[in-house]
């Protein structure tokens, strides 16, 4: 189990298996919220499913629709259990916060240094927990 550290954009705790996305992903048009599957054919992880995994990614590609698609996946239980990102991304944070308010669905968002992104691989087991000092 690898313990992650970084800046919490949405506080919480998580423990699980990593799905690493090699490139930024556009959620709108790139993710089917019904299945949690990446459907952007040009994305290297096309065909993978979030399925409750800890999704490690550089960030989203700019679409206004990102919060809605992430939130919908979280509502349906097909979304990630947490997001670990290397680039600050308000649209992912917005989707997570709204899903908590509207559906009581949680998806903590942790901002980490690039080194983590280089080091982590799909299938790694990771964990992190918000402490008072890290908020």
């Amino acid at each position: 189990m690898i313990e992650l550290a970084g800046t919490w954009l949405v506080p919480g705790r998580f423990e699980g298996s990593v799905l690493r996305l090699d490139e930024p992903l556009s959620f709108w048009g790139g993710v089917d919220p019904g299945s949690g599957e990446i459907i952007d054919r040009a994305h290297p992880q096309n065909g993978e499913r979030f399925g409750g995994r800890v999704v490690v990614m550089p960030g989203s590609r700019g679409s206004s629709g990102t919060p809605g698609v992430l939130g919908e996946a979280l509502r349906l239980g097909t979304g990630p259990s947490a997001l670990v990102i290397t680039k600050p991304d308000i649209n992912l944070v917005a989707g997570s916060l709204a899903a908590t308010t509207l559906y009581d669905a949680r998806c903590p968002v942790l901002l980490v240094a690039d080194e983590w992104f280089e080091r982590l691989e799909t299938g790694d087991l990771v964990t992190a927990e918000t402490t008072v000092e890290s908020v």
Partner: peptide
Amino acid sequence: GIAMQLAMQLLVSAATVS
């Protein structure tokens, strides 16, 4: 209410992110 609370959470997060 929770709508205004969410609005503030979004703005504070946006400030942190930017």
